[in-house]
Simulated assay, not measured.
Amino acid sequence: MYITITPQKLGANYSQSAADYVDYLEKENQLPGIEEKEQELFFNQEEDGISPEMVVKEIDANTAKLEKMEPKFYSITVNPSQYELKKLQNSSEALKQYTRAIMKDYSSSFNREINGRPINVNDIKYFAKIEHHRAFKGTDYQVRENQPYATKILELKNEIRKIERGEMQGSIRSREQQIINLEREAPHQQNGQRIAQGMLKDGKQSHIHIIVSRKDVSNSHSLSPGSKYKVSEVELNGKLVKRGFNRDDFFKKAEKTFDKQFQYQRNFVETYQARKDFIKSPKAYFSAIMGLPASEKALAIKMLRETGIPLPPVIPLSKAQLSVKLIKTIQKGILTASRSASIGI
């Protein structure tokens, strides 16, 4: 499970309204061939079938006393793995149930009180939407490693057009054959085609987008899951006031909620804590994998290879293989994959 929490983008080129983001979330409903009955609509804790217009209206109106450069909403993206989606049988209804369950985890992760009581899910104004497709991004390692081939192909296509216009001499047929060869030689392929930015990814790709208002449902209290204030207490007007949001707590709760709700047997490498350890101490991480029972170890290695992390040809399975050079190689690969959202930390 890979979960991200991102504040609204603000600046000269970004709207103060939620309209642009909501419009972005409608992109899948606008794909060719998508019938109305197949479209995914917005929902919240109690309601289904909410229109995008209503989402924009509700989020934009819930911004009392927020400064111009303060985020008016946060985006939460919930990305189940292929194994988790298989357990759910890629069901939209199951994903919807899970969303409503983890929004309870989200609310309970605030170290805040409203009128002397802990925050609960009824205090949160949010709208969620399920998507079933993903496209390769320019930051994905497959696209980046294919880029030299894409650049050369574009150059050859430009040359062909110039030859056709009589602006240069040369063989069109030779260049067309070079293009065919480059398409085949590109290191990352999907269904016999060179992976390029914008290409839809194969396999189950269902995920959840949640747009959460910065203010509570009463439009009176600011609820920020940002990292500016960690869980703490501060004195205000002579009283101790709780503040902050515990992201670690939320991510761990969301994981446990999935496992309990769907009776999912989580492998070591799928755990949030293990993925954190992966970045901090690869040596301890692989040592832990070595200690797993044989069947769990085999699945752990399989899952690890499927994450998209640029690992060395041989995954270290003995203490002798855990060299400093190898650890640095792995850490570099992890950082690269993290930046391209290939893994969730």
Score class of each variant (00 low, 15 high):
Ala18Asn: 04
Ala341Pro: 05
Leu299Asp: 13
Asp248Thr: 08
Ile119Lys: 10
Phe127Gly: 02
Leu335His: 03
Lys72Arg: 14
Gly308Asn: 05
Gly238Ala: 02
Lys96Pro: 00
Glu164Asn: 05
Ile102Asp: 12
Ser295Cys: 08
Met199Asn: 06
Gln189Ala: 01
Ala128Phe: 09
Gly333Phe: 01
Ile208Gly: 04
Glu67Gln: 00
Gln273Trp: 05
Gly244Cys: 04
Glu233Thr: 15
Glu84Thr: 14
Arg134Trp: 09
Ile130Cys: 02
Lys319Cys: 07
Pro71Gly: 00
Lys283Trp: 10
Thr329Cys: 11
Thr257Glu: 08
Gln30Trp: 03
Ile34Thr: 14
Met1Glu: 07
Leu154Glu: 14
Lys204Pro: 00
Asn29Thr: 09
Asn13Asp: 15
Gly203Leu: 11
Ser51Met: 11
Asn13Cys: 13
Gln190Glu: 13
Ser75Asn: 10
Asn29Glu: 06
Gln8Trp: 00
Met168Val: 12
Glu70Phe: 10
Ile34Glu: 06
Glu46Met: 04
Lys96Met: 13
Ser15His: 01
Lys260Thr: 06
Lys201Cys: 08
His207Pro: 11
Gly344Thr: 13
Val231Phe: 03
Met168Asp: 07
Thr139Gln: 15
Thr99Cys: 11
Leu156Gln: 05
Ala61Ser: 15
Ile315Arg: 00
His188Asn: 12
Met168Ala: 09
Phe268Val: 13
Asn158Ala: 11
Phe245Gln: 04
Gln331Pro: 08
Ile119His: 12
Asn122Val: 07
Gly244Trp: 03
Ser338Gly: 13
Val314Gln: 14
Leu95Val: 06
Ser340Gly: 13
Ser338Leu: 15
Pro313Leu: 10
Thr307Asp: 07
Glu70Leu: 07
Glu164Trp: 01
Gln169Arg: 13
Tyr272Ser: 06
Asn111Pro: 01
Arg175Cys: 11
Tyr24Val: 04
Lys9Met: 14
Thr336Ser: 13
Phe73Arg: 12
Asn246Trp: 03
Asn219Val: 12
Asn115Ile: 01
Lys201Met: 14
Gln193Gly: 03
Lys239Arg: 14
Arg243Cys: 14
Lys137Ile: 09
Ile279Gly: 05
Tyr141Ser: 12
Gln169Lys: 09
Gly166Ile: 06
Ser338Ile: 15
Gln82Lys: 15
Tyr126Thr: 06
Leu154Cys: 03
Met303Val: 02
Gln16Ser: 04
Lys256Glu: 08
Ala320Ser: 11
Thr63Tyr: 12
